[in-house]
Nucleic acid binder design. Structure first.
Lengths: 221, 221
DNA sequence: ATCTGACCTTCAGGCTGACTTAAGGTTCTT
DNA sequence: AAGAACCTTAAGTCAGCCTGAAGGTCAGAT
């Protein structure tokens, strides 16, 4: 699941360079080359935005301000100006970082990674992974478009795994969260529920992996 | 509730200047003037750390590394060097921002505020070193992007080393922490587990070094 | 160089933890 | 109140993992 980056940059050479560097590092880059299209973009669709302040057609600081009002997406500002006042103003407007041209692509990359390392926890309501579609609010699960009938506990267990896709979740935390929180001793109840979930999910059930001695995880595709 | 800031800076003039500026803006500043006292500090007691890389007595990057291992506190690095390699290295070590001297105090202030504006949500506990990527919460290990399948004990041992990257961990503490805490006498069980971890890690396995008569350490790259 | 103790690796035994099925008990619905 | 749906426990079985032994290797000391 690569991070999506929006690049707003009018200079063709520089843009090319940045895009190729980011793409090489596994990022999914959308490149907009003027201010008006930047204003039409949806900042919330991206994980991070790289914004050049020097644009024809619109003032970079205005774009920054609008982005900040519509989404929480971190913005990394790019500028040729080395004046402190511009830096201060962008940071005051909510820019999360500031890189001055000229710069090495490695530096930009390092800053982007440093920024993404602390991810915003997206409160997603619908989790789609593989053939599975899990609507946490509606409590509906579909496998390849087919509705799957799960009981309360079965759904909560699957959702608990799906919300941290790929992570191992301990038996204890699953018991605490889904079953009776103050339950003593060991029991095989959890196993029985997962056994049913697996069966009901058919082929996708194989993605619920046992982490021996720890708990369970939902394998990412 | 004002934010607590730790300033590590040996230059008296610059330090004075920064402290007075930050104090004027309502921050509570603790100023340490040399590397050894910086090493004794508790990074987790502060909301943000401003660290000058050029210090007598200790290397700034080492302090940064240690801070990063012991706390999640964001670190803003201060340096006279304008070399990209130093920037990249600090950012790679977990620095959250980088300011080059000379700078206007207003710029530093703006960056500090930009940083504090975003509270830490969920601290991701991911250790990246060399080709290894160890997600402590998810219990996932990747070597050069390839998933490595480790058992519970194997993972815990590797994680124990990685969390104190470069430091030797005694056999006893590993046994206490990962294996049965009240275990009598000597056994070769630990060796067996590390043998398997090394094998599963392939070339990176060589980074698990034996500290003769003491224990093991994971070599930093 | 030789010795000694610590460490590495392989291997098989044994055990812990997990899966499945079945049945009893509980809660919800009608 | 009866029935259905669901949760839990129990029991049998099985797979994966941990462990200690044994023999070989290596590092440090004399």
């Amino acid at each position: 699941m690569s991070s999506k980056i929006l690049l707003v940059e009018d200079d063709k050479n520089l843009g090319d360079q940045i895009v190729s560097h980011l793409a090489r590092d596994g990022f999914e880059v959308t490149w907009l080359r003027d201010g008006s299209s930047a204003l039409d973009a949806e900042p919330k669709d991206f994980d991070l935005i790289v914004l050049d302040l020097m644009l024809p057609g619109a003032h970079g600081l205005d774009i920054l301000k609008i982005y900040r009002e519509t989404a929480e997406t971190p913005v990394l500002v790019l500028s040729a100006r080395n004046e402190t006042s511009t830096k201060v103003r962008s940071l005051a407007l909510g820019a999360d970082d500031y890189v001055t041209k000229p710069f090495w692509p490695e530096e930009l990359l390092a800053r982007i990674q440093a920024r993404l390392r602390r991810p915003l926890l997206h409160a997603t309501d619908v989790i789609e992974t593989g053939a599975l579609r899990i609507d946490v609010n509606a409590r509906v699960v579909e496998n390849a478009g087919q509705k799957v009938d799960l009981t309360r506990i079965e759904f909560d267990l699957l959702a608990a795994l799906a919300q941290r896709l790929g992570s191992a979740i301990t038996r204890q935390s699953l018991v605490d969260r889904v079953l009776d929180p103050d339950r003593e001793g060991t029991s095989r109840t959890l196993d029985v529920h997962f056994s049913r979930v697996r069966k009901k999910l058919g082929s996708e059930g194989g993605r619920i992996a046992t982490v021996w001695g720890v708990g369970y995880r939902l394998l990412a595709t």
